[in-house]
Design a binder for these strands. Structure first.
Length: 446
DNA sequence: ATCGGCTCGCGCAA
DNA sequence: TGCGCGAAGCCGAT
Protein backbone atom coordinates (compact mmCIF):
# COMPACT_ATOMS: atom_id res chain seq x y z
CA UNK A 1 0.00 0.00 0.00
CA UNK A 2 1.41 3.36 -1.03
CA UNK A 3 1.60 5.89 1.81
CA UNK A 4 -1.01 8.56 0.94
CA UNK A 5 1.49 11.26 1.92
CA UNK A 6 3.52 10.34 -1.17
CA UNK A 7 0.65 11.41 -3.39
CA UNK A 8 -0.89 14.76 -4.30
CA UNK A 9 -3.93 15.48 -6.42
CA UNK A 10 -3.13 18.21 -8.96
CA UNK A 11 -6.66 19.05 -10.10
CA UNK A 12 -10.24 18.69 -8.89
CA UNK A 13 -11.67 16.21 -11.38
CA UNK A 14 -13.73 13.11 -10.62
CA UNK A 15 -12.53 9.62 -11.50
CA UNK A 16 -14.35 8.13 -14.43
CA UNK A 17 -14.73 4.66 -15.80
CA UNK A 18 -11.67 3.91 -17.89
CA UNK A 19 -8.06 2.71 -17.86
CA UNK A 20 -5.48 4.12 -15.46
CA UNK A 21 -2.55 5.81 -17.16
CA UNK A 22 0.83 6.11 -15.50
CA UNK A 23 2.64 8.98 -17.22
CA UNK A 24 6.22 7.91 -16.48
CA UNK A 25 8.72 10.72 -16.52
CA UNK A 26 11.46 10.99 -13.93
CA UNK A 27 11.27 7.46 -12.57
CA UNK A 28 12.03 5.21 -15.52
CA UNK A 29 11.86 1.82 -13.85
CA UNK A 30 9.42 -0.94 -12.97
CA UNK A 31 10.87 -2.11 -9.67
CA UNK A 32 10.50 -0.08 -6.46
CA UNK A 33 8.52 2.69 -8.12
CA UNK A 34 5.85 4.25 -5.87
CA UNK A 35 4.16 6.01 -8.77
CA UNK A 36 3.73 2.73 -10.66
CA UNK A 37 2.60 0.99 -7.45
CA UNK A 38 0.04 3.72 -6.79
CA UNK A 39 -1.24 3.50 -10.37
CA UNK A 40 -1.53 -0.28 -10.04
CA UNK A 41 -3.41 0.13 -6.80
CA UNK A 42 -5.86 2.48 -8.55
CA UNK A 43 -6.25 0.11 -11.48
CA UNK A 44 -6.96 -2.79 -9.17
CA UNK A 45 -9.49 -0.98 -7.01
CA UNK A 46 -11.29 0.36 -10.10
CA UNK A 47 -10.86 -2.97 -11.93
CA UNK A 48 -9.41 -1.22 -14.93
CA UNK A 49 -6.40 -1.87 -17.17
CA UNK A 50 -3.16 0.01 -16.56
CA UNK A 51 -1.21 1.69 -19.33
CA UNK A 52 2.27 3.16 -18.90
CA UNK A 53 3.06 6.11 -21.12
CA UNK A 54 6.32 7.95 -21.72
CA UNK A 55 6.40 11.26 -23.56
CA UNK A 56 9.55 12.10 -25.46
CA UNK A 57 9.77 15.89 -25.59
CA UNK A 58 11.55 17.54 -28.53
CA UNK A 59 13.65 19.56 -26.05
CA UNK A 60 15.39 16.34 -25.03
CA UNK A 61 16.49 15.80 -28.62
CA UNK A 62 19.27 18.35 -28.07
CA UNK A 63 20.81 16.03 -25.50
CA UNK A 64 23.94 14.27 -26.70
CA UNK A 65 23.42 10.88 -28.34
CA UNK A 66 24.95 9.13 -25.34
CA UNK A 67 22.24 10.45 -23.02
CA UNK A 68 19.53 9.69 -25.48
CA UNK A 69 20.75 6.14 -25.91
CA UNK A 70 21.19 5.64 -22.19
CA UNK A 71 17.59 6.65 -21.60
CA UNK A 72 16.04 4.79 -24.52
CA UNK A 73 17.89 1.56 -23.76
CA UNK A 74 16.54 1.82 -20.25
CA UNK A 75 13.03 2.37 -21.61
CA UNK A 76 13.31 -0.68 -23.87
CA UNK A 77 13.98 -2.73 -20.77
CA UNK A 78 11.02 -1.07 -19.00
CA UNK A 79 8.82 -2.10 -21.92
CA UNK A 80 10.02 -5.70 -21.80
CA UNK A 81 9.55 -5.99 -18.04
CA UNK A 82 6.09 -4.42 -18.20
CA UNK A 83 5.18 -6.77 -21.03
CA UNK A 84 6.00 -9.76 -18.82
CA UNK A 85 3.58 -8.29 -16.26
CA UNK A 86 0.88 -7.85 -18.89
CA UNK A 87 1.09 -4.06 -18.69
CA UNK A 88 1.24 -2.21 -22.03
CA UNK A 89 3.80 0.55 -22.56
CA UNK A 90 3.89 3.26 -25.17
CA UNK A 91 5.97 6.26 -26.13
CA UNK A 92 4.58 9.45 -27.63
CA UNK A 93 6.81 12.00 -29.29
CA UNK A 94 5.94 15.67 -28.87
CA UNK A 95 5.15 18.21 -26.20
CA UNK A 96 3.65 16.44 -23.18
CA UNK A 97 1.11 19.22 -22.65
CA UNK A 98 -0.37 18.39 -26.07
CA UNK A 99 0.24 14.67 -26.27
CA UNK A 100 -0.89 13.60 -22.83
CA UNK A 101 -4.42 15.08 -22.78
CA UNK A 102 -4.98 13.86 -26.34
CA UNK A 103 -3.89 10.33 -25.42
CA UNK A 104 -5.98 10.32 -22.23
CA UNK A 105 -9.02 11.30 -24.23
CA UNK A 106 -8.36 8.75 -26.94
CA UNK A 107 -8.00 5.95 -24.38
CA UNK A 108 -10.97 7.25 -22.34
CA UNK A 109 -8.71 7.24 -19.29
CA UNK A 110 -10.32 7.25 -15.85
CA UNK A 111 -7.28 8.38 -13.83
CA UNK A 112 -3.81 9.69 -14.68
CA UNK A 113 -0.82 9.23 -12.36
CA UNK A 114 2.63 10.74 -12.77
CA UNK A 115 5.89 10.87 -10.83
CA UNK A 116 7.36 13.94 -9.12
CA UNK A 117 10.10 16.33 -10.18
CA UNK A 118 10.80 19.81 -8.78
CA UNK A 119 12.18 21.11 -12.08
CA UNK A 120 10.39 24.05 -13.70
CA UNK A 121 9.79 22.37 -17.04
CA UNK A 122 8.13 19.44 -15.33
CA UNK A 123 5.98 21.68 -13.14
CA UNK A 124 4.89 23.63 -16.22
CA UNK A 125 3.90 20.46 -18.07
CA UNK A 126 1.94 19.13 -15.12
CA UNK A 127 0.12 22.39 -14.50
CA UNK A 128 -0.98 22.51 -18.12
CA UNK A 129 -1.97 18.84 -18.22
CA UNK A 130 -3.85 19.07 -14.90
CA UNK A 131 -5.92 21.93 -16.32
CA UNK A 132 -6.75 20.12 -19.54
CA UNK A 133 -7.68 16.69 -18.20
CA UNK A 134 -11.27 15.82 -17.33
CA UNK A 135 -10.06 13.18 -14.87
CA UNK A 136 -7.83 13.30 -11.77
CA UNK A 137 -4.08 13.83 -12.17
CA UNK A 138 -2.12 12.41 -9.24
CA UNK A 139 1.53 13.15 -8.59
CA UNK A 140 3.56 10.61 -6.62
CA UNK A 141 7.05 11.29 -5.27
CA UNK A 142 8.74 8.10 -6.37
CA UNK A 143 12.22 9.62 -6.40
CA UNK A 144 12.77 10.70 -2.81
CA UNK A 145 12.59 8.42 0.18
CA UNK A 146 10.78 11.08 2.21
CA UNK A 147 8.40 12.92 -0.16
CA UNK A 148 9.85 16.34 -0.90
CA UNK A 149 6.84 18.28 0.39
CA UNK A 150 6.61 16.19 3.57
CA UNK A 151 10.31 16.44 4.44
CA UNK A 152 10.02 20.22 4.60
CA UNK A 153 7.56 22.91 3.54
CA UNK A 154 10.20 25.55 2.85
CA UNK A 155 13.63 26.08 1.38
CA UNK A 156 16.14 24.74 3.89
CA UNK A 157 19.13 26.81 4.84
CA UNK A 158 21.63 23.98 5.02
CA UNK A 159 22.08 20.25 5.44
CA UNK A 160 22.17 20.91 9.18
CA UNK A 161 18.58 22.15 9.21
CA UNK A 162 17.33 19.54 6.74
CA UNK A 163 19.05 16.47 8.22
CA UNK A 164 17.02 16.12 11.44
CA UNK A 165 13.76 16.54 9.54
CA UNK A 166 14.54 13.83 7.01
CA UNK A 167 16.15 11.46 9.48
CA UNK A 168 13.17 11.69 11.81
CA UNK A 169 10.86 10.58 8.99
CA UNK A 170 12.94 7.65 7.74
CA UNK A 171 11.31 5.29 10.24
CA UNK A 172 8.01 5.93 8.47
CA UNK A 173 9.16 6.13 4.86
CA UNK A 174 12.21 3.89 4.47
CA UNK A 175 10.04 0.80 4.08
CA UNK A 176 10.36 -2.35 1.99
CA UNK A 177 8.78 -2.70 -1.46
CA UNK A 178 6.64 -5.59 -2.56
CA UNK A 179 6.79 -7.29 -5.95
CA UNK A 180 4.30 -6.67 -8.72
CA UNK A 181 2.09 -9.58 -9.78
CA UNK A 182 1.26 -9.94 -13.47
CA UNK A 183 -2.02 -8.27 -14.43
CA UNK A 184 -4.96 -10.27 -15.67
CA UNK A 185 -6.76 -7.38 -17.41
CA UNK A 186 -4.83 -5.63 -20.10
CA UNK A 187 -5.44 -2.94 -22.68
CA UNK A 188 -4.47 -3.66 -26.28
CA UNK A 189 -1.74 -1.37 -27.54
CA UNK A 190 0.67 -1.53 -30.42
CA UNK A 191 4.25 -2.25 -29.33
CA UNK A 192 6.70 0.64 -29.46
CA UNK A 193 8.29 1.16 -32.85
CA UNK A 194 11.83 1.74 -31.62
CA UNK A 195 13.17 2.16 -35.14
CA UNK A 196 11.02 5.20 -35.60
CA UNK A 197 12.37 6.76 -32.43
CA UNK A 198 16.05 6.24 -33.10
CA UNK A 199 17.93 4.71 -36.02
CA UNK A 200 20.27 2.47 -34.13
CA UNK A 201 20.95 2.04 -30.47
CA UNK A 202 24.32 0.78 -29.43
CA UNK A 203 25.14 0.27 -25.79
CA UNK A 204 27.97 2.30 -24.32
CA UNK A 205 30.26 -0.43 -22.98
CA UNK A 206 31.66 1.87 -20.29
CA UNK A 207 28.25 2.32 -18.77
CA UNK A 208 25.45 -0.12 -19.38
CA UNK A 209 22.01 1.46 -19.13
CA UNK A 210 18.86 0.05 -17.59
CA UNK A 211 17.42 -1.37 -14.40
CA UNK A 212 19.40 -4.62 -14.45
CA UNK A 213 22.69 -2.82 -15.05
CA UNK A 214 21.83 -0.38 -12.27
CA UNK A 215 21.11 -3.24 -9.87
CA UNK A 216 24.43 -4.86 -10.81
CA UNK A 217 26.24 -1.59 -10.28
CA UNK A 218 24.74 -1.24 -6.80
CA UNK A 219 25.55 -4.84 -5.93
CA UNK A 220 29.18 -4.47 -6.99
CA UNK A 221 29.52 -1.23 -5.08
CA UNK A 222 28.08 -2.69 -1.88
CA UNK A 223 30.20 -5.80 -2.02
CA UNK A 224 33.53 -4.42 -3.11
CA UNK A 225 33.77 -0.65 -2.64
CA UNK A 226 31.44 0.55 0.14
CA UNK A 227 33.89 -0.70 2.78
CA UNK A 228 36.41 1.96 1.77
CA UNK A 229 33.88 4.69 1.01
CA UNK A 230 34.32 6.94 4.06
CA UNK A 231 38.07 7.09 3.73
CA UNK A 232 38.50 7.14 -0.03
CA UNK A 233 35.47 8.84 -1.56
CA UNK A 234 37.40 12.09 -2.09
CA UNK A 235 40.15 10.37 -4.04
CA UNK A 236 39.11 10.26 -7.69
CA UNK A 237 41.75 7.59 -8.37
CA UNK A 238 40.49 5.21 -5.70
CA UNK A 239 37.30 4.22 -7.51
CA UNK A 240 35.51 4.10 -4.15
CA UNK A 241 32.38 5.97 -5.24
CA UNK A 242 29.09 4.36 -6.22
CA UNK A 243 28.82 5.65 -9.83
CA UNK A 244 25.06 5.32 -9.41
CA UNK A 245 24.21 8.92 -10.26
CA UNK A 246 23.25 8.38 -13.92
CA UNK A 247 20.93 5.54 -12.86
CA UNK A 248 19.46 7.62 -10.06
CA UNK A 249 18.98 10.57 -12.39
CA UNK A 250 16.98 8.59 -14.96
CA UNK A 251 15.19 6.73 -12.19
CA UNK A 252 16.63 3.41 -13.38
CA UNK A 253 17.29 2.61 -9.73
CA UNK A 254 15.30 3.62 -6.66
CA UNK A 255 17.12 5.65 -4.02
CA UNK A 256 14.95 3.97 -1.42
CA UNK A 257 15.95 0.48 -2.60
CA UNK A 258 19.57 1.64 -2.64
CA UNK A 259 19.25 2.88 0.95
CA UNK A 260 17.61 -0.36 2.11
CA UNK A 261 20.35 -2.48 0.52
CA UNK A 262 23.06 -0.24 1.95
CA UNK A 263 21.62 -0.55 5.45
CA UNK A 264 21.67 -4.34 5.08
CA UNK A 265 25.25 -4.50 3.81
CA UNK A 266 27.95 -5.75 6.14
CA UNK A 267 30.34 -2.91 5.39
CA UNK A 268 31.56 -0.97 8.47
CA UNK A 269 29.07 1.43 9.96
CA UNK A 270 31.19 4.49 9.24
CA UNK A 271 31.05 3.72 5.51
CA UNK A 272 27.35 2.97 5.47
CA UNK A 273 26.66 6.19 7.33
CA UNK A 274 28.82 8.27 5.01
CA UNK A 275 27.13 6.88 1.90
CA UNK A 276 23.61 7.17 3.32
CA UNK A 277 24.30 10.80 4.24
CA UNK A 278 25.06 11.56 0.58
CA UNK A 279 22.34 9.36 -0.84
CA UNK A 280 19.59 10.63 1.43
CA UNK A 281 20.32 13.97 3.11
CA UNK A 282 22.30 15.70 0.41
CA UNK A 283 20.46 14.25 -2.56
CA UNK A 284 17.02 15.03 -1.16
CA UNK A 285 18.21 18.48 -0.07
CA UNK A 286 18.78 19.24 -3.74
CA UNK A 287 15.13 18.47 -4.53
CA UNK A 288 14.21 20.75 -1.62
CA UNK A 289 16.22 23.60 -3.15
CA UNK A 290 14.69 23.25 -6.62
CA UNK A 291 11.21 22.76 -5.18
CA UNK A 292 11.23 25.95 -3.13
CA UNK A 293 13.49 28.24 -5.16
CA UNK A 294 12.45 29.10 -8.71
CA UNK A 295 15.92 30.51 -9.42
CA UNK A 296 17.68 27.22 -8.73
CA UNK A 297 19.53 27.41 -12.04
CA UNK A 298 20.95 30.89 -11.79
CA UNK A 299 22.96 33.31 -9.65
CA UNK A 300 19.67 34.87 -8.56
CA UNK A 301 18.78 31.91 -6.35
CA UNK A 302 21.89 32.11 -4.13
CA UNK A 303 21.79 33.11 -0.46
CA UNK A 304 22.08 36.87 -0.05
CA UNK A 305 25.39 36.90 1.86
CA UNK A 306 26.90 35.07 -1.14
CA UNK A 307 25.36 37.32 -3.77
CA UNK A 308 26.49 40.45 -1.93
CA UNK A 309 29.97 39.07 -1.45
CA UNK A 310 30.41 37.78 -5.01
CA UNK A 311 29.04 41.00 -6.49
CA UNK A 312 31.44 43.13 -4.48
CA UNK A 313 34.28 41.12 -6.02
CA UNK A 314 32.95 40.90 -9.56
CA UNK A 315 35.28 43.74 -10.60
CA UNK A 316 38.38 42.06 -9.16
CA UNK A 317 41.11 41.40 -11.72
CA UNK A 318 41.21 37.74 -12.75
CA UNK A 319 44.51 36.05 -13.37
CA UNK A 320 42.93 34.09 -16.22
CA UNK A 321 39.66 34.63 -18.06
CA UNK A 322 38.27 31.97 -20.39
CA UNK A 323 35.28 31.96 -22.69
CA UNK A 324 32.65 29.22 -22.39
CA UNK A 325 34.15 27.65 -25.54
CA UNK A 326 37.62 27.52 -23.98
CA UNK A 327 36.18 25.79 -20.92
CA UNK A 328 34.21 23.41 -23.10
CA UNK A 329 37.24 22.38 -25.13
CA UNK A 330 39.40 21.95 -22.02
CA UNK A 331 41.72 24.70 -23.23
CA UNK A 332 42.74 26.32 -19.95
CA UNK A 333 46.33 26.69 -18.75
CA UNK A 334 45.84 24.05 -16.06
CA UNK A 335 46.13 20.35 -16.88
CA UNK A 336 44.28 19.32 -13.74
CA UNK A 337 41.21 21.35 -14.62
CA UNK A 338 41.38 20.25 -18.25
CA UNK A 339 41.55 16.66 -17.07
CA UNK A 340 38.31 17.05 -15.12
CA UNK A 341 36.63 18.56 -18.17
CA UNK A 342 37.91 15.69 -20.31
CA UNK A 343 36.58 13.19 -17.79
CA UNK A 344 33.18 14.86 -18.03
CA UNK A 345 33.10 14.99 -21.82
CA UNK A 346 34.48 11.50 -22.41
CA UNK A 347 32.57 9.57 -19.76
CA UNK A 348 29.51 11.69 -19.00
CA UNK A 349 30.55 11.61 -15.37
CA UNK A 350 32.82 13.61 -13.15
CA UNK A 351 34.07 12.51 -9.77
CA UNK A 352 32.24 14.28 -6.93
CA UNK A 353 35.30 15.89 -5.44
CA UNK A 354 36.60 17.03 -8.83
CA UNK A 355 33.19 18.43 -9.72
CA UNK A 356 33.54 20.90 -6.84
CA UNK A 357 37.02 21.87 -7.93
CA UNK A 358 35.92 22.10 -11.56
CA UNK A 359 33.05 24.49 -10.75
CA UNK A 360 35.08 26.65 -8.39
CA UNK A 361 37.74 27.24 -11.02
CA UNK A 362 35.05 28.23 -13.51
CA UNK A 363 34.10 30.93 -10.98
CA UNK A 364 37.74 31.96 -10.61
CA UNK A 365 38.39 32.17 -14.35
CA UNK A 366 35.16 33.72 -15.64
CA UNK A 367 34.44 37.37 -16.28
CA UNK A 368 31.63 37.49 -13.70
CA UNK A 369 30.04 35.09 -11.21
CA UNK A 370 26.79 35.23 -13.22
CA UNK A 371 28.68 34.10 -16.33
CA UNK A 372 30.45 31.37 -14.35
CA UNK A 373 27.10 30.03 -13.20
CA UNK A 374 25.79 29.89 -16.76
CA UNK A 375 28.94 28.15 -18.04
CA UNK A 376 28.98 25.52 -15.30
CA UNK A 377 25.28 24.73 -15.59
CA UNK A 378 25.34 24.48 -19.36
CA UNK A 379 28.43 22.25 -19.46
CA UNK A 380 26.98 20.00 -16.77
CA UNK A 381 23.58 19.84 -18.45
CA UNK A 382 25.14 19.08 -21.78
CA UNK A 383 27.80 16.54 -20.88
CA UNK A 384 26.89 14.92 -17.58
CA UNK A 385 24.65 11.87 -17.76
CA UNK A 386 23.06 13.21 -14.61
CA UNK A 387 22.68 16.71 -16.04
CA UNK A 388 19.37 18.58 -15.94
CA UNK A 389 18.95 17.22 -12.42
CA UNK A 390 18.38 18.99 -9.09
CA UNK A 391 21.71 17.50 -7.96
CA UNK A 392 23.57 19.31 -10.71
CA UNK A 393 21.91 22.68 -10.10
CA UNK A 394 22.42 22.43 -6.36
CA UNK A 395 26.00 21.24 -6.77
CA UNK A 396 26.89 24.22 -8.95
CA UNK A 397 25.12 26.59 -6.53
CA UNK A 398 27.11 25.08 -3.66
CA UNK A 399 30.45 25.33 -5.44
CA UNK A 400 30.07 28.73 -7.05
CA UNK A 401 27.51 30.35 -4.81
CA UNK A 402 27.90 29.10 -1.23
CA UNK A 403 24.45 27.50 -1.17
CA UNK A 404 23.97 25.34 1.95
CA UNK A 405 27.51 26.29 2.91
CA UNK A 406 28.95 28.83 5.30
CA UNK A 407 30.96 31.93 4.51
CA UNK A 408 34.73 31.67 4.72
CA UNK A 409 37.37 34.27 4.94
CA UNK A 410 37.37 36.76 2.17
CA UNK A 411 39.70 36.61 -0.81
CA UNK A 412 39.77 38.05 -4.33
CA UNK A 413 37.14 36.94 -6.86
CA UNK A 414 35.64 34.30 -4.52
CA UNK A 415 34.62 36.78 -1.84
CA UNK A 416 33.43 34.67 1.07
CA UNK A 417 32.78 31.56 -1.01
CA UNK A 418 34.77 28.53 0.10
CA UNK A 419 38.01 28.35 -1.83
CA UNK A 420 39.69 25.31 -3.31
CA UNK A 421 43.00 24.98 -5.06
CA UNK A 422 45.21 22.42 -6.71
CA UNK A 423 47.46 21.98 -3.69
CA UNK A 424 44.43 20.79 -1.76
CA UNK A 425 43.95 18.15 -4.45
CA UNK A 426 47.63 17.23 -4.26
CA UNK A 427 47.28 16.69 -0.51
CA UNK A 428 44.40 14.30 -1.08
CA UNK A 429 45.35 12.31 -4.15
CA UNK A 430 47.88 11.67 -6.90
CA UNK A 431 47.14 14.45 -9.36
CA UNK A 432 49.47 13.12 -12.07
CA UNK A 433 47.71 9.78 -12.07
CA UNK A 434 44.31 11.41 -12.36
CA UNK A 435 45.48 13.55 -15.27
CA UNK A 436 47.04 10.60 -17.04
CA UNK A 437 43.85 8.59 -16.73
CA UNK A 438 41.68 11.40 -18.04
CA UNK A 439 43.98 12.04 -20.97
CA UNK A 440 44.00 8.37 -22.02
CA UNK A 441 42.12 7.63 -25.17
CA UNK A 442 39.95 4.84 -23.90
CA UNK A 443 38.57 5.71 -20.53
CA UNK A 444 38.14 4.28 -18.00
CA UNK A 445 39.24 1.71 -15.46
CA UNK A 446 40.16 2.84 -11.96
C1' DA B 1 50.35 15.43 11.36
C1' DT B 2 47.17 18.44 13.78
C1' DC B 3 44.77 22.55 15.17
C1' DG B 4 42.48 27.02 15.32
C1' DG B 5 40.73 30.82 12.81
C1' DC B 6 38.20 32.48 9.08
C1' DT B 7 32.58 34.45 8.90
C1' DC B 8 27.23 34.47 8.64
C1' DG B 9 22.77 33.31 10.07
C1' DC B 10 19.50 29.65 11.45
C1' DG B 11 17.09 27.48 15.05
C1' DC B 12 16.60 26.60 19.58
C1' DA B 13 16.96 27.64 24.49
C1' DA B 14 15.98 31.00 27.64
C1' DT C 1 18.62 37.86 23.06
C1' DG C 2 22.40 34.73 23.19
C1' DC C 3 24.73 30.82 21.57
C1' DG C 4 26.30 26.61 19.10
C1' DC C 5 27.42 25.07 14.98
C1' DG C 6 27.67 24.07 10.09
C1' DA C 7 28.22 19.56 2.43
C1' DA C 8 33.31 18.12 1.07
C1' DG C 9 38.79 23.81 2.81
C1' DC C 10 42.79 26.76 3.18
C1' DC C 11 46.57 28.61 5.65
C1' DG C 12 49.90 29.26 8.87
C1' DA C 13 51.58 27.92 13.37
C1' DT C 14 53.09 24.30 16.13
Amino acid sequence: MTDPRRTRLLNNCQESNGPVIYWMSRDQRVRCNWALLFALQKAESLQQPLIVLFTLAPSFLQAPLRHYEFMLKGLQEVEATLCSLNIPFCILQGEPENELPRFAQKMKAGVVVTDYSPLKISRRWKKSVAGQLQVPLYEVDAHNIVPCWIASGKQEYSARTFRPKVNALLAEFLTEFHDIKPRSVSAELKPVDWNRIVQSLKADPALMPGEKAAANCLETFLVSRLASYAEQRNDPNAGAVSTLSPYLHFGQISAQFTALQTAKSNAPEIDRKAFLEELIVRRELSDNYCCYNDHYDSFEGLPSWAKVSLSSHSGDPREYIYTPEEFETAATHERLWNAAQLELVKTGKIHGYMRMYWAKKILEWSETPEQAFITAISLNDRYALDGRDPNGYTGVAWSIGGLHDRPWFERPVYGKIRYMNASGCARKFDIARYIARCEENDLFSP
